[in-house]
């Protein structure tokens, strides 16, 4: 029982990160990954690999449309091993558990980027003679957010791992999405707070903040996702209990 990535997964991450370095500020991370041939590798991978890539997209591009581009790519490549178990979802939202998990992975990446930027800002900024990160009001908020994010990533990875092995837990995908969206929102708020008044006008901060809320439009609110997960879990619980 561990969270280690295998060599292939680490290589994939390296390729994704290298490719994303070439994305221009207004460019599409997804298009760059396609041009670099990374998406072809992903087409042979499992959901875990897709989630790893989507986290990097979330961390690097801040472009929520890449998630939809990933859905479209997957749909254009039939034969992949990924399940499609929620056909009744609304068209404008993720239509499968697979899609929900990709959104969740993207949200983890977005949250990660928010926290790293917030931490850099707090480490550099001096307030009344002390670095901002030395104030526990800032450092503990960063740490609390980082813990939420770590747990969300684990939920995403575990759900994807079981999906890849054909043993999906019915409630795992919405649960992972709930944890991810909640963590991304928390991290985005932490980012704005770390920047102070500047955070309400800095375009990069505002883009990330709005990106987190765009996740709620794509996946649903954390509360609704937890409830959906709960309903599935309850439906699968033994009748005697």
């Amino acid at each position: 029982m561990n969270l280690d990535l295998d060599d292939d997964q680490r290589n994939l991450l390296g390729a994704v990160r290298t490719a994303l370095l070439a994305v221009s500020p207004a460019g599409s991370g997804w298009a760059v990954l396609r041009q670099a041939g990374v998406t072809a590798t992903l087409a042979d991978g499992g959901l875990v690999e897709w989630c790893l890539a989507l986290e990097e997209l979330g961390a690097s591009c801040h472009d929520i449309t890449t998630v939809r581009a990933a859905f479209a790519f997957l749909d254009a490549h039939p034969g992949e091993k990924l399940p499609d178990v929620v056909p009744s979802a609304q068209p404008a939202t993720p239509t499968t558990d697979r899609d929900l998990l990709l959104c969740a992975a993207y949200g983890v990446g977005l949250g990660r980027e928010c926290l790293e930027v917030a931490q850099d800002r707090a480490a550099d900024r001096v307030i009344t003679g002390r670095r901002q990160i030395e104030y526990q009001g800032t450092s503990h908020r960063l740490a609390e957010s980082a813990l939420d994010l770590a747990l969300a990533r684990i939920a995403v990875w575990h759900a994807a791992w079981y999906e890849d092995r054909g043993r999906p837990a019915g409630h795992a995908a919405p649960a992972a999405a709930a944890a991810s969206v909640a963590a991304a929102l928390t991290c985005a708020h932490t980012l704005v707070q770390a920047f102070g008044a500047a955070g309400t006008s800095d375009p990069d901060v505002v883009r990330r903040y709005r990106g987190a809320y765009a996740l709620t439009e794509l996946c649903g609110s954390p509360r609704s996702l937890w409830q959906a997960a709960g309903e599935r879990w309850l439906a699968a619980a033994p009748a005697s209990t």
Binding site: A178, A179, R223, W226, Q227, A229, G230, E231
Partner: peptide, 18 residues
Amino acid sequence: AAGDLVRLRAQVAGARAL
């Protein structure tokens, strides 16, 4: 309350993984 239960289960499972 089922959503709350799943949230708590996920929290315990994540802690165990860590």
